[in-house]
Simulated scan of single mutants.
Amino acid sequence: MTLTGWSVFSFDGIGTTWEISTPEDLPERVRAGLLGVVEDFDRSYSRFRDDSLIAVLAREPGTVTLPAGAGKLEQLFKKLYHLSNGAMTPLIGSSLERLGYGADYALRPLGHPVPAPRWEDVLVWSGTSISASAPVVLDIGATGKGQLVDLLASVLRGAGTEEFLVDASGDMLHSGTEPLRVALEHPYDPTQAIGVVELRDGALCASAANRRTWGDGLHHVLDGATGRPIETVVATWTMAATAMEADALATALFMVDPPVLETEFEFSWLKVYSDGHAAYSAGFEGTLFT
């Protein structure tokens, strides 16, 4: 998303395109710092590279030490794992690979869907330490990109930049007093919008079944309890104070009824179902087109 008159720093990272918009050009040292954070994050958590920290656990049981922010991921995933009765899980990687969404991007199913391993059976995650009693394919994509958005925002603030927009291909964090009008992409036609929302000094994240699709009805939002793509929901949007929470809750809305999430989190939301109807929270300050 381009802001008129602002400078844009664009780059690729963790498999997506990023744009960081600021009123003034970012110094080279700040740009280098941002890119370093992205590389460190990818080298820690990517299931698509053999040299990542979590790749060790895919090859054999053991323990790895993750970066300092891992504790926040652990707490958020544990809460959503329990609220979703195991449907939302960082152990979904093996189920995705089974359906063809692996490191080689073959996008050819290897067999029938398989559930993710149960957290309590194979994984012990405590802060920065994570141990597996059997080989596991971790995938933190449901909230990892949001955490990385927040980490880049911290770099910007640490460099004295207080007004900015971090846009990770639609997952956004805005800092500033002037609100932005953001279009909500139509889940079946990316050239169209189903509405607009105002974003000011907070995060807006989306999850859509059409973003990564292949084969016959296959996409990347799976129910961890069954290993199957979710068919009842096609797109969600959430607004929260941090991108990490907004990102996680956008995925959780595919699996959990909103009132259940609202008992534990402060956020607003929009949810579009596969039959065409939409539901949204009272606090979702946007306009839906008819």
Rank of each mutant, 00 (worst) to 15 (best):
S84L: 05
S84E: 03
N85F: 05
N85I: 00
M88L: 15
P90L: 10
L91H: 14
L91I: 10
I92T: 10
G93Q: 14
G93W: 13
S95F: 12
G100K: 08
G102Q: 11
D104C: 07
Y105I: 08
A106V: 11
A106R: 15
L107F: 13
R108E: 15
P109T: 10
L110H: 04
G111F: 07
G111S: 11
H112C: 07
P113K: 02
P113F: 08
R118Y: 13
W119I: 03
D121L: 12
D121W: 13
V122K: 14
L123D: 11
V124E: 15
W125V: 00
S126H: 05
S126I: 02
T128V: 08
T128G: 03
S129R: 14
I130T: 02
S131M: 09
S131H: 12
A132S: 14
S133H: 06
P135A: 10
V136W: 12
V137S: 14
L138A: 07
I140V: 15
G141W: 00
A142I: 01
A142L: 07
T143E: 14
G144H: 12
G146D: 03
G146F: 09
Q147D: 15
L148S: 14
V149Q: 12
A153E: 02
A153V: 01
S154P: 01
G158C: 13
G158A: 10
T161D: 09
E162I: 00
E163F: 05
E163G: 00
E163P: 00
F164V: 02
V166R: 10
V166M: 09
D167G: 01
A168Q: 05
M172Y: 04
G176M: 14
T177M: 13
T177H: 03
L180K: 02
L180T: 03
R181G: 12
R181T: 15
A183L: 13
E185M: 06
H186Q: 06
H186N: 12
P190F: 03
P190A: 11
T191K: 15
V196R: 04
V196S: 05
V197K: 13
L199K: 08
L199V: 14
L204E: 00
A206Q: 13
A209N: 11
N210S: 15
R212W: 02
R212F: 03
G215Y: 03
G215P: 03
L218Q: 00
L218S: 00
L218H: 00
L218D: 00
H219M: 05
H220Y: 09
V221W: 01
L222H: 09
L222I: 05
D223L: 05
D223H: 02
D223S: 03
G224L: 10
G227Q: 09
R228G: 11
R228T: 13
I230E: 06
I230F: 05
